[in-house]
Amino acid sequence: MLKSILTRLLAASIAIAAFGPLHAQTSGGAPNMAQMGNQVATFSGSMHAAAEVCGGYTKDQLADMKAKQKQQMTKMGLTAQEFDTAFDTGKKKTDERWDTMSKAEQKSACEELRQQMSQAFNGMIK
């Protein structure tokens, strides 16, 4: 589960980086920009839920990150309501997954996520 989450995060980040400038230069944006924005917002909600369980962030930090993500997505054409709906959907689904896991499984999943994120970002920064 967490590997697929990481993969989706990286793919979404790459897509935003690649298509964000294109969207700004074209009238009406790229055809799938709204769909991509919804996917990114859904994923942001999933990561928010994971961060709540795994720790490392205060509630204020999480709220600030969400606000910044929302601002970025609205610059790309997603409405604030669309962002909130997609974010809440991702958060709810991930919350439900965490609720089915034991504390030991949650701890293991958090450690795996931390390792995956560390490896992914260390490999990207040279």
Rank of each mutant, 00 (worst) to 15 (best):
N38A: 12
T26W: 06
Q116L: 15
A11Q: 09
K107C: 00
K91G: 04
L62R: 10
L2W: 03
T7D: 14
A86D: 05
T42S: 13
T26A: 09
G20I: 06
A41G: 05
M76E: 10
F121C: 00
A67S: 11
K92W: 01
S118I: 09
Q39G: 11
M124L: 15
L2S: 01
L22I: 15
L22F: 08
D99V: 00
A18V: 15
S44L: 09
G37H: 02
S27M: 11
Q61F: 02
E111Y: 04
S13L: 12
P21C: 12
R97K: 13
A51Y: 03
Q81C: 00
Q116R: 06
V40I: 14
K107M: 05
F43H: 10
Q106R: 15
D88G: 02
I5A: 10
T79L: 04
L6G: 02
G45Q: 03
E52T: 09
S4I: 11
K103P: 14
A34E: 07
E105K: 09
K59S: 15
L113R: 04
F19R: 04
Q61W: 01
P21T: 10
K59C: 00
G37W: 02
A67H: 03
Q119A: 15
Q71W: 03
N32T: 08
Q119D: 13
P31A: 14
E82W: 01
